[in-house]
Amino acid sequence: MGGHREKDTDAALLRAVADGDSTAMAALYDRHAGWLHMRLARRCGDAEAVREVLQDTFVTVWRSAAAHRGEEVGGWLWTIAARRLVDARRAQERTARIETSPMDAIRVEHESSVAAPSTEERVLARLEFGDVGTALDRISPELRDVLRATVVDGLTTRETARLLGIPEGTVKSRAMRARAELRSALAHLSPTPLGGPA
């Protein structure tokens, strides 16, 4: 589907979407929905919530396409999706707080937000990938989540707090600890500046 639209650039597609062009939206969706879905699913264990966030994201694109200003369309889409995910998390947390005690809610949510690779994969990764990868694997999952939300996904401290269901102060302290642990893990892996074996 999408026909001739498949060759159009993202920016051209967005301009057409702003004018209400359905074929342009179909082409944009086919190009980006897949990876956005995967990226959201890695950050949220609730398949139904992921589906809703994805749909919200593209429905928002109908309205906001005209407001797009030159930045990379992929990054722009992810910004929308990440904000939507944070909002969905907040709403979910509110419901959970009514149903369960706060501590339970946080624990449940936290467990569901961690996409846990199998032990085998961890080992493989440690063998296959470079120092940063190994170092990141050494730090605890809690710290890694904070790093991912702030560094990779570009969320603010407040948004990270909402996404992970932890207080803002905790986000800040974990981010600091994550940096410190990463630094020491890297130092441990390559004690000499030349990166020779320890």
Binding site: G74, P117, L124, A125, F129
Partner: peptide, 26 residues
């Protein structure tokens, strides 16, 4: 969903600005 976090992160960052890889992953 079989990629460890650090590699997934770097791929995700790449997808934000590379339309052709985004198309392939999608």
């Amino acid at each position: 969903d079989a990629l460890p976090e650090p590699d997934a992160w770097s791929l995700e960052k790449h997808l934000e600005e590379c339309g052709s890889c985004a198309t392939r992953v999608s």
